[in-house]
Write a protein that binds this DNA or RNA. Sequence first.
DNA 1: ACCGTATTCAGCGCG
DNA 2: TGAATACGGT
Length: 780
Amino acid sequence: MEKVSKDLFRELNPAQQEAVKAIEGPVMVIAGAGSGKTRVLTYRIAHLLNEGTDPFNILALTFTNKAAREMKDRIHKLVGGTEARNVWMGTFHSIFARVLRIDGHLLGYPDNFTIYDTDDSKSLIKNIVKEMELDPKQYVPGYIHHRISAAKSNLISDREYNENDEVTEADKASGKPLLGKIFTTYNQRLKASSAMDFDDLLFNMNVLIRDFPEVLYKYQQKFHYILVDEYQDTNYAQYLIVRNLAAKNENICVVGDDAQSIYAFRGANIQNILNFKRDYPDARVFKLEQNYRSTKVIVKAANGIIQNNKNQIFKEVWTENQEGELIRLIKASTDNEEGSLVAHSIFETKMNFQLPNSDFAILYRTNAQSRALEEALRKLNIPYRIYGGMSFYKRKEIKDLLAYFRLTVNNHDTEALMRVINYPQRGIGATSIDRITVAAANAQCPVWEVISDIGKYDTGVNSGTAKKILEFVMMIRSFSVQLQQMNAFDLARHIAKDSGILRDLYEDKSPEGVSRFENIEELINAVKDFSEGDAPPPMEGENATAFRTLGQFMQEVSLLTDADNDDKEDADRVSLMTVHSAKGLEFPYVYVTGMEENLFPGAQSLKDRAELEEERRLFYVAVTRAMTRLTLSYAENRYRWGDLIFCEPSRFIDEIDASLIEMSGRRQSENKTYINISNDFIIRKKEPPAAAPVPAFPSPVPRKLKKIASVPPSISQETFNAAGADEIVAGITVEHQKFGRGKVLNIEGQGPNKKVTVFFQAVGQKQLLLQYAKLKIIES
DNA sequence: ACCGTATTCAGCGCG
DNA sequence: TGAATACGGT
């Protein structure tokens, strides 16, 4: 033990050592970018363990699953053994979901409550708006959800919301007087579905420890040491939980950087970190100011930027690293040229220094900017990966199967029920579903209650439909019964088959259908991996099972988001992402693109000081991602929402000392106007790269052709120009865009009504109107 | 139930 | 511009 802890400190600089050693009492660590923030947190926990602290008494809160996982791994490497896995380490949401599964019954929730994700919440809101017969233009689900979320994050209940005149007046003034009513109904529906949304996990945790002092006491006793990562990003609900849990022992350590607070727009309160000294007058504050990541040039530039913000904790970040290259500034005339110049710069740097693609990152403010950059990279055959796209768990087919799992675990989960009651189609149509919903609303009970005893309610569905509903209920019940009998994998496979999802997707032979089928297989494999792991040690108050159940799988999966389950396969790619998602990462070569007024800083932020300061912190984050060389770029014209607009270079460029910047030469070899027109044309029309000379006068191509580009490569656009009606005769082989190849059996009808019967290998016999079906002749 | 077409809308996004 | 959704015709 002793030896390990000596080694532990040798790897830390004096400031870091002090921060690690200050175990007792309130501590705040202000960690500049690249100063070893995570290192301090992990070493601190390792130190606690080495000193003999029971891991069960340590609570470490992070913002992302990824951060929690990385920290666990690193601690495990430092202290070895199995101790690390017993630390209560995870996101705010996952830790408090765990607590609520144990003690949530005090608030009237079963331990198998469902967690609604944002889509579930919005869909529920949408339905409520519809039921109340309000104008969906006025009551946009996304906006309402945002309001409700903001209220919950500030611990304002629906009742308090409705009783607050200021708030209700504001809603009235903006033409949404019934927003409070929707809030109330929304909460009622959640409760009836035994469900919590993400914000409820924090809100209800607060209610729990507010209303049940013995529960608060229990966790105060348990969590002797509390650590919080990214403290600058905590919202009020999170802040208050932490403060209450730490109130007894005051062994609380928060780590963060006020200069990197970039989530005020979703409720983070930078005051939490600025006021820490006020909350804990005895607090010791440690500043980590030595940067180990970046060159002197980059550090100087970053300092120059952030000093323009007024509201901050003073610190001076410095580095012993070498001076490094000057910051490059690329000026392009259009967004497409910007992409091309960035791509060429990456290509050249890569070749000159023989670097892997993974050394490069391209950052942008908005996701919409990625397209031009992608096109440019593709032209140079530079492999890239876009972060923050559609995550695995957001795909339709995955959500469908997960909905079956959810409904199996919690029959009251109404969003899941609505999703699958008629998928795959079982003849329970929109009208019947409406009738059921209305009956449930009238009877003030969950939809599941209505359909599981449909005769008892006055729904008005006809007997045929009632029978189909009964069959559906029986099926779900049979799944639920298996929860304690089968392990997660066996039950998941059983559900995928019995529900008809597998068959439904298997029958779809289109490339999209095949991919969906593969995704389902991947999900079932994930369940398999989970099943084969050790049964988790039962927590206090939990039932122990000999095997891992589907219920346990769902608890884990409902708080996962972006596929951190990284693809190791060909990881050597250039990274493309928004500045927000780059937070916490580092790359040798970083390109920050779209450095223009109204884009970065964004147009909405120019109105008020606080928002502009957040944009500036965002830029600070972007700049400090770079280790070796930073490149900034902007375009003088940019396509936005379809038309070309003029842009001014960002004010942030001027905030960097001019002596640190070098203007990178534009590629002057070709006529400028020519480049713009031709490049724009090529990229927008998705024609092949101009290996051959580009036509000076692009021939007008019908717009519609663009759509074709999304069709998989095997099917080119000409392929599906319909064959002439006269050319199709019985006996020939044809290809259909969706159904694939098949043989023509029969032709009937005349002119526009000419009908053809085809037997497709994949899907069987189909009748098609020649007028609509675009058939290609494969073999006559 | 299904398809093509019209319409609408556009910020960053953890869990 | 393009993606997501609503609508109207078969």
